[in-house]
Structure formats: C-alpha cells, structure tokens
Design a protein around this nucleic acid. Structure first.
Lengths: 261, 261
DNA sequence: CTCCTCAACTCGTACATACATGTACTACGG
DNA sequence: CCGTAGTACATGTATGTACGAGTTGAGGAG
C-alpha cells in the first residue's frame, strides 16, 4: 500500500498548526485518498512528518473526531469512519396494510430490506406521564399511562430506542401492557379496541446524544441523534399514543410528503 | 453569587479523572445548579479544586463542549450553552394560501413569530446539476439548471442556507433567475408559469456540519445540522424544483403528518 | 504444528511548563 | 470627563515527558 502523502505546514499561515494538520487529513478523506475504514497514519508517524509535539497531533485528530470523520480505536489506530447502510423511513411506514399483514412497522421494513430485526430490553410499567406527554395525550397529572420501552436492533446492531405511552384507561389489562403486543404491534391492538387510527404527527429534533444514549445505541463519537416524538390520532381526533424515539442519525434518512395546497 | 460546589474525585473509581470531572459539571448543568449562560468555574479554579493539571481540566471541558453543553469564549471563560428559541416548521408551511398573500414561506413564518427576517448572499448561476439533483429532477448530465443559493437570517442571526435547482428550460429568462424572485417566491412564479404544484417530498438527514457550514451558520461547536432536500412535484407528477437546505439543528423543530391508512 | 510469551506499536491519561491572545477592569494622564 | 495604558485573568496553542493499557504479530517452547 502506498504511503499517504500529506502536504507540509504553511509557516506563514495564521491558522493554528493543529488546524492545518486537521485540514490536510480532512482533505485526504474528502478526496478519497483516505477511504472509509482506512487507517489514518499513527500519531507517531504524524509527529515525525510534521515535526510537532504529540499533543498537537492529538488536537488535530480530536477536531476530526468531533466532526464525525474518524474514530480512534485504542491500541489499533485511528480510522476513517465508515457509514452503515441507511434506513430510509418512508411516509407510508405506518400504513394500515402493513399492520393487516401482522407485522409491526419496524419488523416489516427491516425484513423487506434484507436485515435481521430484533427487539430487546422491553420494559413495561404503569406510571404518571411526563408533562410533555400528558399534554399531547390530553391527560392530567393524576392520570396514568402504560409505558412501553424497548430497543430495536438490525443484525445485532442497536439502531433505535423507543418509549411508547398509552393512556392506562385504554391499555390496562390488554395486550398493549404485555411484553409481546401481538401481530401488527400496538397500533393493531388499538384499532381492535375500537380506536381507529387516522393520522400521526411527528416532531423531529436533532442533537448530540446523552451519555445513556451513546451507550444504548453504541454510537461513535461525533454522531448526532434524531429525536422523534410521534403522536397517534384517531378518526375522532383523540390522541391515543405518544412514541418517543431516539435514532442514530447516520443510520436513517427520514422522508415525508407535504401538501402544496 | 454563591460559589458552585462540585464533588471531590473518587480515587477508587476506574473512571478517568477528566471524565469524572466532566460528569460533575454535566450533573451540575442538568440539575440546574449551573444555569444557561452561566459561567463554568475557570480552568485555574478547577485545577485548584481538584488538584490536577490543566490538561486534565481541559480534557474534561472538551468532553462537555463536544456534547454541545458548553461553549468556550476566548479570554472570557466557559459558559453553559443557551439555546435559541426554536422555529417550528409546520406541515402547512408551503400552503398555497401563504403564497397568494405574496409572502415567501420563510418571510411569512418569521414575521408571524415576531422575528425580523432577512435574506443575504443571494447567488444565481446556470450550470450542470449535481448527480443527485439531476436524478430527482429527471434530467441528464447535459441538461442545465438555474441554481439559486441564499442564506436566511432572523434578527441578523443566520439560521439556514438553501440552494434551489430549477431546470433551466423552465426558469431561464424568468424572474426565478433573478435575485429578487418577486412576491410569493419562486413557487409562486412556477405556478404562474403553469406548473401547478401538488406536493413536496422532503428527505431529512442529520449530521455534524462541514467547515463551511459552521462558518456560514455561525454554529457553536457540538451542534449538528439538519440537511433537508425538498423536491417539488406538479399535479402532472413532474419534479420542477429541488431545494437543498442546511439548518442549525438547535434552531428548529420539524413537524410532519403521516397518514395511518 | 500449536500455544504462549513477549516485544513493538497503538492510543489513553496525566503531569509540568511556556508563551500567545483575547477580555475586562482599574488607574492614571490628559 | 474621557480615553488609554496597564494589569489581571481568561482561554488557545505548543513543547516535552512519563506511564497505562489494548492489539498485533513474531518467535520460541512444548
């Protein structure tokens, strides 16, 4: 393998040395001279090449890691981050026809794309809803909800955590309050209970992950998350479920349709 | 002002010292003992409190900055990041009734929320479309497009950059190819030209900003961006515009509606 | 041939030091 | 009264050193 060639420092530049070095490596990545998954020259080699201290090199590498361009692996080296295949979430992903085939949205989609879907860490409790959820569901502080939290994985890799809230008045004693909510998922159960779903409203935020989220989703440093809150409304305009999900942003592309009228 | 009280280090812990320190400060922020905009104790004070070297303190602060929790200001100190008021992008934001009032989507929305909208850095060129855009518009490599790029600001703060592509065949010689596209924006012009808009499809990604984006949007470190690609379709199913926009993710919440059918 | 040990190389953590550069306030001179 | 120089303090950049800890592969023992 040919050795990666990097430019020399520009001593006339005002730009800090570690930034210049970061620029060089970034350019190499963007131009493809450093391909995905490839190893960035070691700190020792970069020190030698540029004739600077190790901290300067580490600062440069830190910049790139913060930009999500590289990941460091202890004892192995620094590598150009490779991006997993993205999942495209289409706007018909909660269409009734999918539920009627007995598949929950996630399972149907993942199998359709040839992946092996699993769900773990399922936890069900009955408790008072957080304020924001209570408001969306039109509940008061004294009402309680069934809270279903779980984690979704594709081929063993965690990609999404989700927490659903359904008014306890609706879900208590039904399969919604059990770990296996049955074919078609909880939306199918809600419809069986007479809550005919009309539409969902999704609110999307993007931010850096909290520490627990980094752990639960095994996120690389420098990867933001989508934070998506979906509320399910019935044909009579009642909110019957709020689903709060956090997704690794480099595993997803979200797709929506807007009316022009 | 009462001095912020931070715990001592746990010498029995396996956790690296700088991580423990980062944890302490993060906890203080999350519990509100350090409010938004408040100053984090200086590096010198933290060194004294914990009895560690400056590099250890700086590593801790770097962790928090990477999480988007703090910002450092040269010569002033490190501050808990304050979040700007968010703009909620609703699903009717491109409704025809807005255009008919002679306002482009951005202007109408911002004024509605009491902000002072401006647009700058308008640049218009005619060129060959990028491959992804050509595909969305159903063009070949030999076709050309009118490219309108601009930046949107609210109260002087940049919040979004956008690049629109319209087939040159449609836009050449019209007001779409001029800096001021007229009342109602380019969507109003497209409809006047007989391209009746039916719906838009938006694809949403989230990622860390590129260097130019950090500059153009004056982004704080640790803030990801939304990358949104919107394609406008007419009632006859033709794609007549692709708009590629990058938004500071902490200035926006996106909202969409999904059918349940 | 297989397994294990060990050396070499990698990044991680932490120390100490020095000077540069930006900010804010004070004190002095006009 | 105003402006400016100075000073204290803040973070930014860079050097050098030391040791810890994970990974890898070569080479020797069995």
């Amino acid at each position: 393998m040919a050795e990666l060639s990097l430019p020399d420092l520009d001593p006339t530049s005002d730009r800090a040395v570690f930034r210049q070095i970061a620029d060089h490596i970034r350019d190499a990545i963007e131009q493809g001279s450093l391909a995905e998954g490839e190893k960035v020259p070691s700190e020792a080699r970069l020190m030698q090449h540029y004739g600077v201290a190790r901290m300067t090199i580490r600062n440069a590498l830190q910049v790139l890691q913060g930009e999500g361009l590289t990941v460091a692996e202890h004892g192995r080296g620094v590598f150009v981050r490779s991006h997993p295949p993205v999942r495209r979430l289409a706007l018909d992903r909660f269409a009734r026809r999918h539920r009627e085939q007995g598949k929950a949205a996630f399972i149907a989609e993942t199998e359709g794309a040839g992946g092996r879907p699993t769900v773990d860490l399922i936890k069900i409790t009955e408790e008072a809803p957080p304020a924001s959820v209570a408001e969306l569901l039109g509940l008061t502080a004294t009402d309680s909800v069934i809270r279903r939290s779980r984690r979704y994985l594709i081929n063993g890799q965690p990609v999404e955590t989700a927490v659903s809230y359904v008014p306890a008045e609706i879900a208590r004693g039904t399969r919604i309050a059990e770990p296996d909510s049955g074919p078609g998922g909880i939306y199918a159960r809600l419809e069986e209970l007479g809550h005919r779903l009309d539409h969902f409203v999704e609110e999307i935020r993007s931010r850096m992950p909290l520490r627990e989220e980094t752990r639960a989703l095994k996120l690389a440093p420098g990867v933001p998350v989508f934070h998506l809150v979906r509320t399910a409304y019935t044909t009579v305009g009642r909110a019957v479920e709020v689903c709060d999900t956090v997704m690794s942003s480099d595993a997803y592309v979200l797709s929506y349709e807007l009316p022009a009228r």
